[in-house]
Design a binder for these strands. Structure first.
Lengths: 204, 204
DNA sequence: TGGGCATGGTGACTTAGTCACCGACGCAGG
DNA sequence: CCTGCGTCGGTGACTAAGTCACCATGCCCA
């Protein structure tokens, strides 16, 4: 199940290509990651096969899963995948403990990051509990569009972003397309009106 | 909007009756609470009026909201209500900072609690994203039943526990009643078969 | 060039959420 | 004791979302 991890260590350096699975549910935590470049997608897959993206880790952010595992000495409960090539540092558990104890700046940075993450989680819970699919999808499209308005994700991937099903996303995208808000192509959505999507995301 | 807070301080002592609103969205955080006795219910209410209970704080646990506010110097985004009479300590922000810096045991306790809280959150997200109402309600009933199998909550309150609507809860409870799993009375549900509910909660 | 996989479109159905409304209970104030 | 009002719960009718089954198309590459 768990093939050798292609992460390379060079005196705590971490570098790995896009697509690398950094951790899976039940893996033990091998250290605290400090990203300098790249993005990690952390997602949860339920028994029924429904996947939902919890958050992404970028430079200057922390992986909450990792924090949790280190603090409680437990295994991971979610999956972490490198979305792009990664560069950063891997701080082994012992070293992490030491720095938390001795470096107020490091500690403060971790706290702030944890607090920030928590705010994201709250937003996710609120969305799941009460926002319409239309609003959640509009928000996800805006969040993941590049400068030119291109969103390079399959309907399946978009469904995971909002914790819904592929068919539901397909149908909603069709409605957006019929309204002239987006253009659809295989593996790609192009935003034609960010303002209209913003409106939908806010729930109107 | 915000009447004077009936929490009484006596050299950092905290004591207040059941029903006290400890904080609301946009309140500033006045300190870190360490509970000795009682339970605080923390919930979010979305724009549409849908309420969802995020978690409860009991003795030995921490309020993640409070941690977040202190770490980032922000205001609360959720509401906290005393479910029972509360007894504990209120640690002012400055003192909290000092103890985090100087007392490894205190720091470790806070970390562990934060980590624990996050695990709860993950479970909540997973439930919202993929569990059926039947399963979520069964789980909530089991979690909130007293030793005799009594759950003293209105259908409205149960709906908030699982982030759904009152009518949906009413109908599901009727189905449970018709199956002989629970008995219904005004403001109360009595569990007749915990094992059947456990089965439903696990999704079968 | 022709499988085979990934992607996505669609109909038919089930489950969940919403809206509107009503009735039943329970507790004051007369 | 009755009355009135607020809370609580039940229900029909509808909309939104999720599921299941299946098929069509594009695309990669053997």
């Amino acid at each position: 199940m768990t093939e050798p991890n292609p992460i390379s260590y060079g005196a705590h350096r971490l570098a790995c290509p896009a697509g690398t699975v950094l951790f899976r549910p039940d893996d033990a935590c091998s250290g605290f990651v400090v990203l300098q470049e790249g993005s990690i997608r952390v997602s949860l897959t339920s028994a029924g096969g429904r996947e939902i993206v919890l958050y992404r880790v970028g430079p200057g952010e922390i992986c909450l899963q990792t924090f949790t595992c280190l603090a409680e000495g437990r295994t991971y409960s979610a999956e972490g995948v490198a979305e792009t090539e990664l560069k950063g540092e891997m701080i082994p558990p012992g070293e992490y403990e030491r720095r938390m104890a001795q470096e107020p700046d490091f500690r403060r940075a971790v706290f702030t990051a944890v607090a920030h993450r928590f705010a994201d989680f709250e937003h996710l819970v609120e969305s799941l509990a009460s926002a319409s699919i239309e609003a959640r999808l509009a928000e996800a499209l805006l969040a993941r569009a590049d400068a030119a308005g291109g969103v390079h994700l399959t309907h399946d991937a978009l469904a995971a972003e909002i914790g819904s099903a592929r068919e539901v996303v397909s149908r909603q995208l069709s409605r957006f397309e019929r309204s002239g808000i987006v253009a659809l192509a295989r593996g790609k959505v192009t935003l034609l009106s960010r303002s209209a999507l913003g409106h939908k995301a806010a729930g109107s």
